[in-house]
């Protein structure tokens, strides 16, 4: 049987598309198609990834200009049909700017670009994206300057009430507190899903946590996504 094909949308300034491509092919056992941002057609609709990087140079706000790309218009249309969509780092920023996910990702509270390994607690394992990850706390690198999750108090409550908060920055043993919050995100939020549970956005980079050993947590993240295909 031929392998399934998932799509990765690439923008001018994306720089995690190749890492993602390698991780997805290797651990999801699929082929990939890289879709250039000005292509209004996305042929392979099994699953769509929006990779990290600096789309359009992060001009205006991170992710803002990418929202108007023809490929993103198609992503928005397909998202309403239930196609699984995952945005990582800049991809998460693009999905919030498209309003496919709640909130905004703004300057880190200390205004530094943060690049380090971070522990992330899986707050909700009852999602198609996380149900196959065996650990409760995973280690994914983060690399961003605008990763501080912000939303209104009402929206935050809604996210919590609907169990839409999927990942939170934590200690190694899963404790959530201010000292484990690298960027000042509200309630340590590192990743959320939409209400229909087909769109995931996260700031940490699972595709950068696959290289060093079979224990790397990115591997179980991508393997776990196979059930969505």
């Amino acid at each position: 049987m031929p392998k399934k094909v998932v799509s990765i949308v690439v923008f001018p300034g994306s720089n995690c598309d190749r890492d993602l491509d390698i991780a997805v092919q290797k651990y999801m056992n699929v082929n990939t198609e890289l879709v250039w941002h000005d292509d209004p057609n996305i042929k392979n609709q099994e699953m769509i990834f929006i990779p990290g990087g600096f789309s359009f140079g992060d001009y205006l706000r991170s992710g803002a200009l990418a929202t108007k790309s023809p490929a993103m218009k198609e992503v928005i249309r397909l998202s309403k049909k239930g196609v699984p969509i995952i945005g990582i780092c800049n991809g998460f920023q693009i999905l919030t700017e498209c309003k496919l996910l709640d909130g905004a990702l703004i300057d880190n509270c200390k205004r530094l670009f943060i690049c380090k390994e971070n522990f992330v607690k899986i707050e909700n394992k009852n999602t198609p994206f996380t149900k196959n990850i065996h650990k409760n706390v995973v280690q994914f690198p983060i690399a961003h300057a605008q990763g501080r999750f912000y939303t209104s108090e009402d929206n935050l409550k809604r996210l919590e009430d609907n169990n839409q908060i999927v990942f939170k920055y934590s200690s190694r043993d899963g404790k959530i507190n201010k000292s484990e919050n690298p960027n000042g995100s509200m309630n340590n939020i590192a990743g959320i899903i939409n209400k229909n549970k087909n769109i995931l956005g996260l700031m940490p980079h699972p595709e950068r946590a696959v290289n060093f050993s079979e224990d790397n947590d990115g591997i179980s993240f991508f393997r776990g996504l196979q059930n969505l295909l």
Partner: peptide, 8 residues
Amino acid sequence: DLLSNPII
């Protein structure tokens, strides 16, 4: 729709 993000 573009120049500002109404959330922030």
